[in-house]
């Protein structure tokens, strides 16, 4: 029993047409409060379709989504309420900026939740501080900002609703290295400040190894695996068979093993790698 539970979810596109296609089939998993979940899978594996069910943007063809033990579709008229509790940051969210000023754009979500006056201003200011949107930007047009800044404002707009679960669909796509690092930091900071549950779709195995508590691996609309970083990235062959890979640092260890070095290969971050080599060095000294 977690904050978010998906039970036997199936989503079929194309209805009764000849192009009928299961985008997601019979998926079940549960997410605990405060966890960081990574979702990986190649393009077309159903990742985006799956997360759009988590805040009621898509209705399951079959199965259900429970938020705090309640079926989010129990009362279809209330479905909008779930959107402020489970926030979804789309791919390239900056394409959805529309207001005249940065401040107004970030205010849009909380305003729709009924916040106004000082309370609204306080909420928006807090989020701006958290994501690093400086006061001198408040009155600027979001369209005058750089790509990375626009992304930041768009993410702040979802965070301003203070969702308990926040989902990011490839949040760093198209950004430069500095931009990618900044976005990852914003996500971590929000998680620390609010204790929220975070779900991230990503193609970067390196980022997932650093950030995620658990990884959900999608393949052809089904869950291939849902487990710890260790469980998922130890399964090298399995991942390769479904068109995915392990972090680059893990590949180096696999290659070392191939070269006849007696070394463990379950190393997923540079930090782990350094520790492992230090241990080896110490071991050799003592031998």
């Amino acid at each position: 029993m977690g904050i978010l539970e998906v039970k036997n979810l199936t989503h079929t596109y194309g209805g009764s047409s000849p192009f009928i296609n299961d985008a997601v089939s019979n998926v079940s998993f549960s997410v605990e409060q405060g966890e960081i979940i990574g979702i990986i899978g190649h393009t077309g594996s159903g990742k985006s379709t799956l997360v759009q069910h988590l805040n009621g943007l898509l209705k399951p063809t079959d199965g259900m989504v429970l938020f705090c033990d309640e079926d989010i579709w129990a009362n279809p008229k209330d479905i909008r309420k779930i959107r402020s509790k489970v926030g979804l940051v789309f791919q390239y969210p900056e394409y959805q900026l529309f207001e005249e000023t940065v401040f107004a754009d970030i205010s849009f979500g909380p305003k729709n939740m009924g916040l106004c006056g000082e309370e609204l201003e306080k909420t928006v200011t807090e989020i701006c501080e958290l994501v690093g949107v400086k006061p001198e930007y408040y009155e600027k047009s979001p369209f005058d900002l750089s790509g990375g800044e626009k992304r930041r404002v768009a993410i702040a707009g979802v965070m301003a609703m203070k969702p308990q679960v926040i989902i990011f669909d490839e949040p760093t796509a198209g950004l430069d290295p500095k931009g990618r690092e900044d976005v990852m930091k914003i996500i971590k900071d929000y998680r620390i400040a609010t204790g929220a549950t975070v779900i991230i779709i990503s193609h970067s195995m390196e980022d997932m190894a650093l950030l995620a508590d658990k990884i959900l691996v999608m393949n052809k609309g089904e869950i291939y695996k849902f487990g710890s970083v260790y469980d998922v990235f130890s399964d090298v062959e399995g991942l390769r068979n479904i068109g995915l890979n392990v972090p680059i640092v893990t590949k180096v260890f696999l290659q070392l093993k191939e070269l006849g070095v007696d070394i463990k290969t379950e190393i997923f971050t540079v930090e782990n790698a350094i520790d492992e080599f230090k241990k080896l060095k110490e071991g050799n000294k003592n031998a």
Binding site: D176, K178, P247, V249, V270
Partner: peptide, 11 residues
């Protein structure tokens, strides 16, 4: 200058 290196080089 705001760039990074491949994870191999980083290691």
């Amino acid at each position: 200058v705001g760039l990074d290196v491949p994870q191999t080089t980083e290691l």
